[in-house]
């Protein structure tokens, strides 16, 4: 099975040696406008500090799902829709899945808005709900990932720019629970790694850097995977993620 921490451990190495942003030159660290929804003041302040420290703009911080939707609607009315929302899953009043529901609602109302959902636990079911329809500008990460500041901020930026950031644990769950185990068993170990990284939302070049192989090699793996899974190779990373996830989930 895919080691959940795999991608993240690897990327730290990449950072140390390469010293470039994790997702490579295809994502430039622009100033991103963020709204944070998190009921724990401690974490909300921490996140704000973390993002502003990296030069991003935290427009607003709220404590529950309703306030989040209200804030976004107001900002939208002023023509200042943020680039991305970072939302905790569990917020008042019920402390269950307010964050996910608010995120789904926001994605429907504002297709251009990126939504990154943070949670103490990742559940493949929530990921499926978030990804329903499109994987454009969606992120779903374990809260622990904020410890790796650079990666986390990069994930925020990636989601803000319409990319995908799925937690390796979600991907592991998806791979583990998929009913297509016999087909998945047909993949070589390297292909499984590539599939996992792809499902996390990484581009070919990011995958290549992670696995320390050439872009061409990754492309070959990817087309092999699509061939073995019986998927038509699609252009664009978001659609590719969606195709893979739909396949795993069906």
């Amino acid at each position: 099975m895919l080691d959940p921490s795999y991608g993240w451990a690897r990327s730290r190495c990449g950072l140390r040696t390469g010293g470039i942003g994790l997702w490579g030159p295809d994502i430039v660290e622009d100033r991103v406008r963020v709204v944070i929804a998190e009921d724990s003041v401690l974490l909300r302040e921490g996140l704000t500090r973390l993002l502003t420290d990296r030069g991003h703009d935290v427009v607003a911080g709220v404590g529950d799902g309703e306030a989040l939707i209200k804030t976004i609607t107001e900002l939208d009315a002023q023509g200042e829709l943020p680039d991305v929302v970072v939302a905790d899953v569990r917020m008042p009043p019920t402390h269950t899945d307010e964050g996910v529901r608010a995120a789904v609602q926001l994605r429907r109302a504002h297709p251009g808005l990126g939504v990154l959902v943070l949670s103490q636990y990742v559940e493949e079911r929530y990921a499926t709900e978030l990804l329903a329809g499109s994987s454009r500008g969606v992120g779903y990460l374990l809260k622990d990932r904020v410890a790796d500041v650079r990666e986390f901020v990069d994930a925020v930026v990636r989601v803000a720019e319409g990319g995908t950031a799925l937690d390796p644990e979600v991907v592991a769950q998806l791979l583990g629970r998929s009913r297509k185990q016999d087909v998945l068993a047909g993949l070589t170990p390297r292909e499984r790694e590539v599939l996992g990284l792809m499902a996390e939302g990484r581009t070919n070049s990011a995958v290549a850097r992670q696995l320390v192989v050439s872009d061409g090699a990754v492309e070959k793996h990817v087309s092999n995977i699509f061939l073995k899974l019986g998927l038509s190779p699609s252009e664009g990373d978001h659609r590719r993620v969606l195709a893979v996830l739909t396949y795993l989930n069906s």
Partner: peptide, 24 residues
């Protein structure tokens, strides 16, 4: 679960965040 989630767990995440920033 609730006490853990709102208390120690949140605090540890904040701690990890602080240490992450400090490392940077």
């Amino acid at each position: 679960e609730r006490d853990l989630h709102d208390g120690a767990q949140a605090r540890l995440v904040a701690l990890a965040m602080d240490l992450g920033l400090a490392k940077e």
